[in-house]
Design a protein around this nucleic acid. Structure first.
Lengths: 338, 338
DNA sequence: TGCCGAACTTGCAACGTTGCAAGTGATGGT
DNA sequence: ACCATCACTTGCAACGTTGCAAGTTCGGCA
């Protein structure tokens, strides 16, 4: 089915090279020849073979975005931003999901086998660490997202988790809340996000001269709604439940919200809630969710830009960029308008 | 950086072909030779060049999933299912987002340039129709998702929108609701989903001997939360607001829910809500959302299976598969447990 | 008339891989 | 001693494309 340059050339009675010149708008091609070739191209429905072109040119025009979970809204929204940024530069983004599975991460990022189809990778690792990534055999440029890898030889974009968590917690303190809890702590070595946010949480409390009550810092396995709902149920079962909760992402907060409301308690009157990520769900929940809003566009823009620089041969030292964030005040701490 | 077979061969003092044989575990290779080659492979950190392999073998092991919007939870959840199914067969899925932009859809699906990197495509079109797809120049197999294309020469998986909408509406009728509204009608020729669901909505009302009140059928531009919120506001502004609303997807329903609750009305006491898609958000909203639950796993499984069949040379007539669905009863119509 | 350059066209090689079929050398049987 | 057989190894060509440099044709000018 798929016609090749050679077939077109034979039909048009010219050389393969000339057809290529027509297809690529090259050099001078006589009008007559161009017309003849064009006719053959149309008749055969010629489509260039992207694989051969890539082999020949060393460029595919494809960037891979490798994420833990696409059905986590934060990643889905980030993906949109990355796709938009890459499109500006003429690149197409393809996304793949690892579920944080080390085998899959390795397969996609480390082994050239699959990775080499792409000009570059933007990768948010969960399982792979510093050590794994350091001796990557493939030469495809990579930009890292997230907090997993601290000291890498690779470009890296993150947000200041400690600072952001501190900001969120301070907000709850400023509201006058007395028993402030946190949902999202993580012990697993490969999940640093939770640890960093707990660090910020504690720092804020200590800065305010508050004691950190261990049972109010709840660990979770994942950052999903169900984990938030379960952790909140535990908090409500305490002899002295909290009057405010900082959830380490919006999904946890939405899960927690569901638990709180289902017990007939009110947010923020009985319990104030702060989330993290600023996903769209949180803007449409009732009450809407006060949250830390990382600048997803900045993250995407930096990621794409760094990658493009590398593609153009930039050999400078790996960049370490900290993306901005703001605290979005909404109903889950501010209350509803009358 | 990236070593080639030739470089390995030179280092090991054997032919390129022999290295290839070692890499691919071919034929008989003497233990001694294998060890020697293996050492060279390791020392050079050889990784096979996927592009060259693809050109040579005609197979990349990559399937593309082309969707309108990744940050719509339904698509994100469907993506997960497709990735899981494809992994079973040893294929890697890459996802791309079109935003329903005809230019992008064409670029990705029609022009071999980008599409040809993949062995097959699973494509949910918004803008491209029957006519466009019929004379696709590329020979890469395609499986279509969604209702856009009716009579295609391509494999196609859909759900019975009319029947599902009827079921949802009948549920509201059975609850004894008197003024039942719908949110999600669409006029645009390229958005058939809304039209089909309206068809089912009307059919259910008529079957129950009810009149269809035109102003209770609200059109939207997109199926997003904001559209649902706005449409619900219009409904509430009517002299006689509805006491039940069928929203054509869960995002519309969540937007509508937000509007209802923010006016101090109750769901389902004042207004009952039914959605469509069964996304996770709807299970954690308060109240949780009664919804039509399409069998996403079945859709994914069929899509991948059909595609794999084509890849293996299946030339049979295009399949037209209707995926199953159920009505999930939750609090937005059933009320909350005491 | 002959030469030069412009305008256009082309063949060759290479990107890195693998199928094919042939090559090499040792072994064993007669 | 010879040949068939076996175990292993290899060169060539091809997948479809494009860079390079050389080729061809022609008109214009001396």
């Amino acid at each position: 089915m798929a016609a090749t340059l050679r077939e077109v050339a034979e039909r048009a009675g010219v050389s393969v090279r000339t057809v290529s010149n027509v297809v690529n708008d090259f050099h001078q091609v006589a009008d007559e020849t161009r017309a003849k070739v064009q006719r053959a191209l149309d008749e055969l429905g010629y489509q260039p073979n992207a694989v051969a072109r890539t082999l020949r040119n060393g460029r595919s025009g494809l960037i891979a975005l490798v994420l833990p979970e696409l059905d986590v809204p934060y990643f889905a929204e980030l993906t949109r931003a990355v796709i938009e940024q890459a499109a500006v530069a003429g690149y197409t983004v393809v996304v793949d999901q690892t579920d944080g599975d080390p085998v899959r991460e390795r397969e996609l990022v480390m082994r050239g086998s699959r990775a080499a189809m792409f000009d570059g990778l933007i990768f948010n690792p969960l399982a792979l660490g510093d050590a794994d990534l350091r001796d990557r055999p493939s030469s495809t440029p990579v930009v890292l997202l997230g907090e997993r890898v601290v000291q890498g030889g690779l470009d890296h974009i993150m947000i200041d988790n400690v600072g952001a968590a501190e900001l969120a917690t301070r907000h709850l303190i400023d509201l006058g809340r007395q028993r402030i809890a946190a949902i999202g702590d993580q012990f697993d070595e490969t999940r640093r996000t939770g640890q960093l946010r707990t660090q910020g949480f504690r720092a804020a409390l200590q800065a305010a001269g508050r004691e950190v009550i261990p049972e109010l810092v709840r660990p979770v396995e994942f950052f999903h709604r169900s984990d938030g709902a379960a952790a909140m149920a535990e908090l409500l079962a305490l002899p002295e439940p909290p009057d405010a909760v900082f959830c380490y992402n919006d999904l946890l907060a939405l899960g927690a919200l569901r638990t709180i409301l289902s017990r007939g308690l009110r947010v923020p009157e009985d319990i104030a809630l702060v989330g993290f990520d600023d996903i769209e769900d949180g803007r449409y929940s009732t009450p809407s969710l006060t949250t830390i809003s990382p600048d997803k566009n900045q993250i995407a823009q930096n990621a794409v830009q760094l990658l493009l620089n590398r593609l153009e041969g930039d050999r400078s030292a790996p960049a370490e960029i900290s993306a901005g964030y703001t605290l979005e005040l909404r109903e889950s701490t501010a209350g509803r308008p009358a």
